[in-house]
Amino acid sequence: MIFLKRQLPIIIAFVAGIMMWIRYYIPSEVSTNLEDGYLEWVRIIVGFAAILGILSLLQHHMLKIRMKRPGFAFSYVTIAAFALMMFAGFAPFNFPGFAEKNMETGSLFNWLYEFTFIPMQATMFSVLAFFIASAAFRAFRARSMEATLLLVAAIIMMVGRVPIGDLISNATPTFMMFGNEYHFIDFEEWTGWLLNVPNAAAKRGILLGVYLSQIAISIRIIFGIERTYMGGGD
């Protein structure tokens, strides 16, 4: 049992990890086929995971209803919505008033998708605009030098990325320098500089660190040093 739970997964992780790494350097047909096979496996496993997810979802909500936990009424809504969407997608006939069945354009499923799912998703996303406004209002204070820099950069970015920024820039007087004409306030130039210089520099630093860490964690997993993800402590 301990072999199945501990050693075997580590062996599989080691062999698969090393194999896929070496494969990257070999351009031959064998290596292409190997990769194809691997990718197919991944797709199949992901497909099966959906079943796992559905079971977990139903189990969780059934339990909630049975135990009458707070807010269990919402679980009825979840299960009902799930059942309706599934039925609409799989039913082998046209629902009254709909020209198509299953998931085709003009079917009930498609109608539900377009007129309930899409608006609800868009609503969730647009809540972001409100939250950003309130978070900015609360958190952006010129408490220190760094905070002030952050504040100024944020303001330039916000104004510079919308047409009103262009309007303001074009309204300011110009001056000549090195034979070029510049605006005193030029949001496009400033946002460009912010994005291309400080932003890109910081991002690069973080990215390099992240990718190195990813190499390190890959090595730890391939060599079986990091095993927490298998559910075994140390």
């Binding site: 496993i45 992901v46 995971a49 959906a50 079943i51 796992l52 997810g53 977990s56 927490t228 993800y229 298998m230 559910g231 075994g232 402590g233």
Partner: peptide, 14 residues
Amino acid sequence: DPVVQTVAQEVVKE
């Protein structure tokens, strides 16, 4: 993600 969920259960149990 259902796969993550299964693994998370294992990990927390352990």
